[in-house]
Write a protein that binds this DNA or RNA. Structure first.
Lengths: 226, 226
DNA sequence: GTCGCTGTGTAACCATGGTTACAGACGGCC
DNA sequence: GGCCGTCTGTAACCATGGTTACACAGCGAC
């Protein structure tokens, strides 16, 4: 198939497990895999769709999210280069339909492995272990997310979101809202609050963090609203 | 170790995968496993605790849930005989701490496999596949749960909960509240609503479903509150 | 410049659901 | 019967967060 050598090298660099496979197995994968170059914002898969194949992300990231009927959207996790999409794995293994949506966040290059070849590859211990360990790691993230949406308040979640991304963020309120499964107006409201308390300074499409410690405290404990 | 023959047979019946293992592997498991007979309501593991071992449930069920600081509790899933606990698997594989609580729902008999032996067993393809497939199946349930708590309203969730358990339920309002991560008063309120609409009839520690179709409709679509 | 798009500020309103605080009902036990 | 514990009913209140509806600011295209 179309195998641009540079991309192939990137694939192998990002997924070292592929080099641990027997030559024949790797050849089988490369022979039947389909390469896709996708622009930012494209929908790779959606709810109720059958899973076509297993994606290896070579460049870019995929954002996997649940969508509410009214258009709100809650991101579940992201798949960066070298990682795997547990929903895809899960669907392929259990032969189920997708139960979330996957969209590209930036221009993305991926190699798509057909279900039959994915199944065959699972016979390889190295490959199986690779998938398995990423599965295990992602579980904790999902648990964390459940706890977040079920029990934590929006201002706490927002504060958490703002932390650990440097002093100056280039984001719109809408993007923050999407990240939390909320709406723009709520974010504006809460951010204004934060600003009033001297925690942040607001600007068009940007946000300066003035008091990380204060934010951290707000994130973990009680709120101070409206 | 203490291996009551009847329990051993139950173990093998519930976990056929064990019989597919080489005799030596099974022997190793049986040799180092620890049997536990636990009363109902006992806490098997809790958040921030290291994972001691991998449980095979022979009789009874384990309820795994997230706990909010204020005492509210949201069940994530249950582990019945023959099933596995993905949090335990995940913790053992990733060497992480637990991030949820596990309690027995009834008197429970389980066989606990130490981490070292669990790791060793993962070398067996049959065992690995067994764990893996249950992993895959549980993922969808967790996604479903995230969608529930993030987007669905309490009356819809309650209606869903009531369905598919027969005409006459023996439950207290408190138990229903615990099942949904809510509080007793809300459940009473909503149930009274349901009763006013002729969907159910209420009684002490019991609940008769009069109009399953109506409930189903409410569960899937719009509400009618207060 | 001005048109128009995107992003922001803001206020009023409303739906949801949690909290507090009782009263009473049922049933078991003495 | 009387006492007590559990379960239920209910109402008032409040916090959270989503909805609606604007006004306006920044900025690029023309």
């Amino acid at each position: 198939m179309n195998t641009d050598p540079a991309s192939r090298q990137q694939l192998l660099d990002n997924y070292p497990v592929l080099q641990q496979l027997p030559a024949a197995a790797l050849a089988a994968i490369e022979h039947s895999a389909q390469w896709l170059q996708v622009p930012a914002g494209a929908t790779l898969f959606d709810e109720l769709q059958a899973c076509q194949g297993f994606p290896f992300v070579v460049r870019g990231t995929i954002r996997v999210s649940k969508c509410a009927p009214n258009g709100r959207e809650l991101p579940l996790y992201r798949v960066a280069a070298g990682e795997t999409c547990i929903i895809s794995s899960s669907c392929l293994l259990a032969s189920e339909q997708y139960n979330a949506r996957g969209t590209t966040e930036s221009e993305t290059l991926l190699m798509l492995l057909p279900k039959t070849v994915f199944d065959a590859s699972m016979a390889e211990p190295a490959f199986r272990n690779f998938i398995f360990h990423l599965f295990a790691e992602r579980i904790a993230e999902l648990m964390q997310l459940i706890e977040e949406v079920a029990f934590r308040k929006l201002d706490q979640r927002l504060a958490t979101l703002l932390l650990g991304k440097g002093r100056l963020l280039q984001v719109t309120h809408q993007q923050l809202a999407d990240e939390l499964g909320s709406v723009r107006e709520m974010i504006s409201r809460l951010l204004k609050n934060f600003a009033d308390q001297g925690l942040v300074r607001l600007g068009r499409e940007q946000l300066e963090i003035l008091d990380p410690a204060g934010l951290r405290q707000l994130a973990s404990s009680g709120s101070a609203r409206l």
